[in-house]
């Protein structure tokens, strides 16, 4: 059995579920989730030696997964904007696949997340979606807990600015 195989069992096997949930939460689409995971695994493949020497390899791998999914989301947003410029009536929202009109607000969420910096987006996703504490987020981002908190707060503040108009005037329920 090779050293790499043992390293997989030690580093990646325990976080397989987290990796899959990370790419799924951002893409919400089977094909995109697959593409993001493949991209992340190809980065892990190329940098496996360096990753093993990292202070927190699992946090780094998780971050690579989130970044791959986030980059895919950003690319789709850019593509959609380009298409909308030429064919506005046929513009299709990005993020989760559009199956019903109810998905419009989800699209708005993904569009808003796409406007955050990568660190802010990752921090907000880890906090709100994965329910991580600031210490855990700091490990993933490779920064101090106070900086992680700052990324979360700034990201949330920006999302609130962008998404507040979608919230119903008469209460906290989401306008969908």
């Amino acid at each position: 059995m090779s050293g790499e195989y043992e390293a997989y069992e030690r580093l990646i096997a325990p976080i397989e579920d987290k990796m899959m949930r990370a790419v799924w939460s951002v893409t919400q689409n089977p094909d995109d989730a697959e593409e993001a995971l493949q991209e992340a695994l190809s980065i892990v493949w190329r940098r496996f030696d360096r990753i093993q020497r990292h202070a927190n390899p699992q946090a780094l791998i998780l971050r690579i997964c989130l970044n791959a999914a986030y980059d895919l989301l950003r690319a789709k947003i850019r593509r959609r904007r380009r298409e909308a410029r030429y064919e506005p009536e046929q513009a299709r929202p990005v993020g989760p696949d559009v199956q019903t009109g109810r998905e419009e607000w989800r699209t708005a969420v993904f569009e808003a997340i796409g406007q955050l910096s990568r660190n802010q987006a990752t921090a907000v996703m880890l906090r709100l979606v994965q329910g991580m504490g600031y210490d855990e987020i700091a490990q993933v981002l490779g920064c101090r807990a106070s900086t992680a908190r700052k990324h979360v707060e700034r990201g949330r503040q920006r999302l609130r600015e962008l998404l507040a108009p979608l919230v119903a005037d008469d209460g906290p329920e989401v306008a969908i």
């Binding site: 949330r156 999302l159 979608l166 906290p172």
Partner: peptide, 21 residues
């Protein structure tokens, strides 16, 4: 409003994956 926006984000980024995925 803040809570509603947080809720929107959580709902949009559901982590429950279909079995097929």
């Amino acid at each position: 409003t803040d809570n509603a926006v947080d809720k929107m984000i959580r709902n949009a980024m559901d982590t429950d994956m279909p079995d097929e995925v």
